[in-house]
Design a protein around this nucleic acid. Sequence first.
DNA 1: AAATCAATAATATCATATATTTTTTAAAAC
DNA 2: GTTTTAAAAAATATATGATATTATTGATTT
Lengths: 224, 224
Amino acid sequence: MAKQPHTVGSSTYERIKRDIIFGTLAPGSKLKLDALKARYSASVSTLRETLNRLASDGFVAAEEQRGFFVTPVSKEDLLEIASLRALLECHALRQSIENGDTEWEGDLVAAHHKLHRMELMMQSGDESEKESWKRYDWEFHLALIRACNAPNLLSLHSKIYDRYLRYQLLVLTFRGEVAAAEHKAMLDAALARDPDKATQLLETHIHNGLTHTLEAMQLDSLGQ
Amino acid sequence: MAKQPHTVGSSTYERIKRDIIFGTLAPGSKLKLDALKARYSASVSTLRETLNRLASDGFVAAEEQRGFFVTPVSKEDLLEIASLRALLECHALRQSIENGDTEWEGDLVAAHHKLHRMELMMQSGDESEKESWKRYDWEFHLALIRACNAPNLLSLHSKIYDRYLRYQLLVLTFRGEVAAAEHKAMLDAALARDPDKATQLLETHIHNGLTHTLEAMQLDSLGQ
DNA sequence: AAATCAATAATATCATATATTTTTTAAAAC
DNA sequence: GTTTTAAAAAATATATGATATTATTGATTT
């Protein structure tokens, strides 16, 4: 299992992206090159390449001649991102259910199992690993749609998912039993090859998560 | 009407993107920094920023340690891009029809008028302005969905549209009367506020365009 | 023909220099 | 005292050259 020798550029990209998603770099804050240079120990050239990529991904706002900022958050943006996630993920789910083979089913069951273990941990009060819980959540949703056989769709979806994730992490709270039940229901519908039910469940799942996030946002008064 | 003093970076971005969409930079070809430097008279730093943005947009493939390439074309990719365009554009069209006000209607009628003028010119054999015909086509489709009130959706759509456009331009041929009739029908359905009919027409329109492009691709044997 | 290895080319990264442009600060005007 | 204007400082955009690393090419050997 040799690790690819990731370049400074790609690792800086991942680190900054992560810091934006996890809120370490606050929404709307200015990204001064000198400060970033010290923080990520990369040169200005490398940083500018990175920030340009992130700008194209929607995590960074680049204002001509004025530099870079972390993309601000807003209720409207969250609503739209959630809607886009639902659109892309439901579409991918349909195709995935249609195309998926037994291999896909196996991976899906495995992904759900790992997620479920984590959900049980969270429910029992051990919230020490929110980060890996989120990762399992992502891996389960990815496993659901992976068989859609549409790389561009998957790539688009992962970008939107990350932007949705940022909102969840800004108000990080756990939906517990309800979300776990929704995940189980989606797994069953997918294995039963019922695309209508599966997408309907997914739509509800995303909508419920959105509502939950919105409520938490209002408490935190992040909604400006 | 003072023009913003676009930077070298942004104009280089536009120029390279244009050259990829119009096929001046052939699909799959290597983008050597030295060659680009001469061609676009920009420095390596600026070019690398540009190429990173284009990579995130899907026009350029960046292979770690191996440099940049124009994203290759394939039948599978075209099918997927067309499907994504239909998904995003239909979704946006529904919301646009729901939200659009009289201002939107006016802009839409104007955009269609300009497109139609161009279509008449093309039908009469004057194919000297394929480029502006494509621009009017884009402006009409944009006018249809502009009132969707979802900036992220519009931005995503425009990126996908450009990638679809590249395939059309690689085999540039004119669909004439049929496409013109489809445009008119979509205009009418949108003005009549009939989202089901409008999206169904749009779906067909994109599908017919796809078929047309695929046929032309087979003739040109671009399909690998 | 396949494998090895040196020579070459290209990329990735950085540091530095200059030109523009913003932003800040200070002075002047009303 | 507030607004305008002008100068100074800070930050960005761009370019260039230098170095290290990695790919590719071509010759040599097996």
